[in-house]
Design a protein around this nucleic acid. Structure first.
Lengths: 344, 344
DNA sequence: AGTTAGCACTCAACAAAAGCGAGTGCTAAC
DNA sequence: GTTAGCACTCGCTTTTGTTGAGTGCTAACT
């Protein structure tokens, strides 16, 4: 059986309608609503074919049809019209990014928020670990008699700070001197390469300030530990409640639960270096808990090897077109900003 | 009519039962389940009195009774037994706080999380603004040719950092010198007192580095702006879905919406200097959207005048006893830690 | 006077039954 | 190849009963 033009038109009508209404649609309704110039009976025959070919499904005998995963796949790959962002949306995204360039982690959180706001879908963002990045600079800043701050800048320009408490914090001069010592000694070390042994060695060279140096290195190791893997931010999870497919509280709860499982989200965002936008439909993600969802995802580049990802999660009948547009729009901005900042 | 001992016992039974089951309870069930040594008919008479006195309500004619706000109030004020935290719970709280003393904002976020985890209620935490705090130290740390970090320490020991981008960032020596200049000039200034005029004056004194100084002061003003008011963190909002009173998706959605309204949460946490734990029951909070909820809240002290608040939000039939215990437990730890850290 | 058994009454909640209507597949005519 | 027509299906909504937990009242009992 061949997928002729008319079948495609009908399939398109079914999918568009279902995306809008979340209700199965029947032949008569298609005939009336979408003037295809053919009768409901003809549509009926074509729909029967489309079902045989696996593009649509009948949830139960006397109901209309809904798209299958395969149907959505066809739609996304060949039918969907990619729409442009409106000037307003583009401006909003630009603004969110521009006003958060000072801290990349914060920027990614805000990005997730902006996407969720714009699309009304849940959004997850992963931020790459700093483990593999190298130390560029360390500086100590006095706080009070008992504490000082260690500021750590990595070569991916991530800034971490950590307050270090001591019985008695060194004076400003000493801190300054130690800053230089530690900074010079550790420059270009990868964070993950700092271990107890190195710490001991460096502490020894600090003479009577060994305790301070030791505390600092412990703090650095804490940073690594805290970041164990990637950082995951979610936003707009509550949007799930708006979709009729989750109007059963139990289902909604399951979704919430799923979206709190770090491991699952990491799997979901996947690990690959593609810079393309990927669409994962329904069971394609191989996660039983999320088989009723689709994900639009893409990677963004943070200095060479380090990829973070952004994913938009919605029901399978999500507005793929919009989600793809928004995601591609935001990626453009992020990549531009990151490139510009990293002194390109 | 007098609230004699027997009435109180019955009221207590009603409330305890309702907290557990979320179902109205009738006289016969009380007689059977709570051996009070009187018949259901007697209980019936007493319940009729309790209803007249406004402590309980009949949701509809042929249903049992549920506690009214007034009933809960009596329960909280006079009947409730305050239970101790288990050793395990206490250990958990201690550990959460201890492992986050390095950054107070992060600590408060984690605290919210811990409470939500322990109680299964939604938790909100507010962190006081830094506007009124005074600058203690400012230090610049180089990042790359185009940027450096400004680290700002206030007298409440809050640390903020902000990446500053320039066409060409000064070299390390210059940064060091400027750090000292700016730090010395601004020490003891309240953040909110930094304005354009002061900025211009200081920039002028920096000679050819006026641009750098100006950028820094803009960044500081950004910090103030970003913090416009208080910072609010929420956690465990999804717990709401577990309560039968929100099993209707629309109601749940309304709650989610409400818990995203900053202004409402700020009102909810209120502003007062009491260090006591306060219980706000149902409509007492004067927020129509949250009239079906109760809040257990308390302030914690961050250096003198600055108060942040923690609030636990649940349905009116929440386990007040547990919530109060957890909150008082955590407050003890937080106050102890903060006092210890602030070099007391 | 306080307590209790007994009874008529109410009403939400559940379940079965009935009817509706959107949908299908098939057939026969165009 | 297309379409009108028709019998049939079956989930949804509405209706109608039925049940049972609960009440208030009365009369008898301690």
């Amino acid at each position: 059986m061949i997928l002729n033009d008319r079948k495609i038109k009908i399939l398109e009508a079914i999918i568009n309608d279902y995306i809008q209404t979340a209700e199965p649609i029947g032949s008569r309704t298609i005939a009336k609503k979408y003037g295809l110039g053919i009768s409901s009976a003809t549509i009926r025959n074509e729909m029967s074919d489309l079902e045989d070919m696996g593009f649509i499904i009948q949830p139960h005998a006397s109901a209309g049809r809904i798209p299958s995963d395969k149907g959505y796949r066809l739609y996304v790959d060949r039918l969907m019209r990619r729409r442009e962002l409106t000037e307003e949306e583009a401006r909003f995204l630009r603004q969110v990014i521009a006003s958060n360039i000072n801290q990349i982690d914060y920027m990614m959180q805000e990005t997730a928020r902006a996407i969720a706001l714009l699309t009304n879908y849940a959004t997850i963002v992963s931020e790459p670990t700093v483990k593999k990045t190298r130390i560029r600079h360390i500086q100590f800043v006095p706080v009070d008699e008992h504490s000082f701050v260690m500021v750590l800048v990595t070569d991916s320009k991530v800034v971490k700070n950590n307050v270090i408490y001591m019985d008695s914090s060194p004076d400003e001069e000493t801190l300054q001197r130690l800053s230089r010592l530690v900074s010079d000694s550790l420059r270009d070390y990868a964070l993950e390469d700092i271990d107890k042994e190195l710490a001991a060695r460096l502490a020894a060279s600090a003479g009577k300030n060994a305790g301070v140096v030791m505390a600092v290195l412990n703090a650095i190791m804490d940073v690594i530990q805290a970041e164990d893997d990637v950082q995951i931010y979610t936003s707009g999870v509550k949007n799930i409640l708006s979709f009729p497919e989750f109007s059963d509280v139990e289902k909604a709860k399951a979704m919430f639960q799923a979206l709190e499982e770090r491991d699952m989200l990491i799997t979901l965002l996947g690990k690959n270096n593609s810079e393309k936008i990927q669409v994962v439909i329904g069971a394609e993600n191989n996660l039983a808990l999320l088989e009723d969802c689709s994900v639009i995802k893409a990677n963004y580049n943070v200095g060479g090897q380090n990829f973070g990802s952004i994913g938009i999660i919605g029901p399978k009948r999500m507005d793929y077109s919009q989600a793809v547009s928004v995601l591609s729009g935001i990626l453009k901005h992020i990549n531009a900003v990151i490139k510009a900042l990293s002194g390109g």
